[in-house]
Write a protein that binds this DNA or RNA. Structure first.
Length: 456
RNA sequence: GUGGUUGUAGCUCAGCUGGUUAGAGCGCCGGAUUGUGGUUCCGGAGGUCGCCGGUUCGAAACCGGUCUUCCACCCCA
């Protein structure tokens, strides 16, 4: 056998069954997006490098796939950097395009570029693949789909409320009950940093805090100390390690800590607004939870931060995330354009639905009826009815070769086609068809009209 | 990017401290059954053991490199 071909690390092929299941999820998400009034846009797979570089932090730049310039790219490369073999610096002189890393930054670019054609507030959704040069793990790929819904041009907190409802609506329609929508607010995190006098270490502080559920209280404190956060500061924020109870009780717990912080109090007010609205219009099956350790997400979040966790017992990273960013388009020169949005991780949702057996059986059903091929005349006889069936939206097909019956039947069985029609010389004379139900084994010889009724 | 792990038939895997022609189950193909699949029985095909190099009289096994898989870190959907 020749050397088997392969695909790059972290990419996947999808079989017909997998595509059917993925389309099922896409369909549910898309239909809720539309239901909430979002409109679709699409952007190119690759952008100019300077649109993407520097927008995701140092770590992000490393994970962006760069596209080599076409032609003799070494000729135009910086001679000195080439000599020095400085990969980091040479990149910009041999690559000026890169694959998109997420959908949010390209969206910001889109908004700025088309600002005069857009009616604000602009609600858009976008379902496209993104690429990251990450090391693959379970539920982590180098090519994967994001399903984003964002609103730009409104600071209203009702948007946040709607996004919580949107998450709930999507997961409910997928039959995925018991997901937890975790909510936090950047202003609360800033408040913590302010109260302990470590504003300049906000990022280090939040990154460490975010790991609470993973490395525990002591682990977090250890990391904070390593980052130079004072012992007395740790004492001050001690209560956030002991928060318990429901949303309201947790809010009470942080109110005391943030009493002296204006920004912290603003954050609390936002959280309370959202909670109150959701309490008034209950969610169908998701839980809304305050999680002050939630700091995930990109540096540009300024208000609400969302993350969705799979139901308890399912080992999977977050299946969605999002937040408010007051100045995303600022980096492209458009000021005062607040945005808020959420993202669904299609590939991870797929894995969760698969694990819990939540895909409806009908998702993968393809052909409804297969006609056995007995020869030229019989095939023509069959094809006439097949055309009629297709006009009635019944998926029907003829086995292409007059192969042995055994082979044709096996084929139908393997593909789990529920009905088979046998029409040979005898049936042709009577202008009838023998219909076999593959599940029960029953079969009848009936007319074309009856056939249509039986299998529709 | 750092550390670890995995790779043997189409699939899931066995293969002892290195020892002749590398096995199983499932699947595939053919037959029993030329108008009846899913069960059964009989027969058959299919592998330069991920790839490259090294050690050895001898390598699927040991060593190095590389690619791939999964895991932890980093980060994240």
């Amino acid at each position: 056998m020749a050397q088997k071909p392969s695909i790059p690390k972290g990419t996947r092929d999808f079989s017909p069954a997998e595509v059917a299941k993925r389309n099922y999820i896409f369909g549910k998400i898309k239909s809720q997006f539309k239901n909430f009034g979002f409109q679709p846009i699409e952007t190119p797979s690759f952008e100019n490098s300077d649109t993407l570089m520097g927008k995701y932090g140092e770590e992000g730049d490393r994970l962006i796939f760069k596209i080599l310039n076409s032609g003799d790219f070494l000729k135009k490369a910086d001679e000195k950097l080439l000599q020095e073999k400085d990969s980091l610096k040479i990149t910009s002189s041999i690559s000026e395009k890169a694959l998109r890393y997420d959908l949010t930054v390209p969206f910001a670019r889109y908004v700025v570029q088309h600002q005069n054609e857009i009616d604000f507030p602009f609600k858009r959704y976008q379902i496209q693949p993104v690429w990251r040069a990450d090391r693959p793990q379970k539920g982590r790929f180098r090519e994967f789909f994001q399903c984003d819904a964002d609103v730009v041009g409104s600071k209203s907190l009702w948007q946040e409320v709607e996004f919580v409802q949107l998450y709930d609506a999507v997961f409910d329609s997928l039959g995925l009950k018991g997901v937890t929508i975790k909510l936090n607010n950047r202003k609360v995190l800033s408040g913590f940093a302010e109260v302990i006098g470590e504003q300049d270490k906000l990022i280090d502080f939040t990154v460490a805090l975010d790991k609470l559920d993973k490395i525990g209280e002591e682990g977090v404190k250890k990391e904070m100390r390593e980052k130079g956060i004072a012992e007395i500061a740790l004492e001050k924020i001690q209560p956030i390690f002991n928060l318990q109870g429901d949303f309201g009780q947790k809010i009470q717990g942080i109110k005391d800590i943030l009493a002296t912080s204006e920004i912290g109090k603003a954050g609390i007010a936002e959280l309370e607004f959202i909670e109150k609205a959701i309490a008034a219009i209950p969610l169908k099956s998701a839980k809304l939870e305050l999680d002050v350790t939630l700091a995930r997400g990109l540096n540009y979040y300024t208000g609400a931060i969302f993350e969705v966790a799979a139901p308890e017992g399912v080992k999977m990273g977050s299946i969605g995330g999002g937040g408010r960013y007051d100045d995303l388009t600022g980096i492209f020169g458009l000021k005062d354009m607040s945005g808020v949005g959420i993202s669904f991780g299609l590939d991870r949702i797929y894995l969760v639905l698969e694990e819990l057996g939540l895909f409806p059986e009908t998702v993968t059903e393809n052909t409804r009826v297969l006609f056995i091929n007995f020869g030229e005349e019989e095939a023509l006889y069959a094809l006439k009815v097949i055309s009629e069936l297709r006009r009635n939206k019944i998926v029907a097909e003829l086995y292409p070769d007059a192969a042995k019956m055994n082979k044709q039947m096996k084929y139908a069985d393997k593909r789990e086609i529920p009905f088979v029609v046998l029409a040979g010389g005898e049936e042709m004379q009577q202008e009838k068809f023998t219909l076999k139900n593959m599940k029960t084994g029953e079969q009848y010889t009936i007319s074309a009209t009856e056939l249509m009724e039986k299998i529709s």
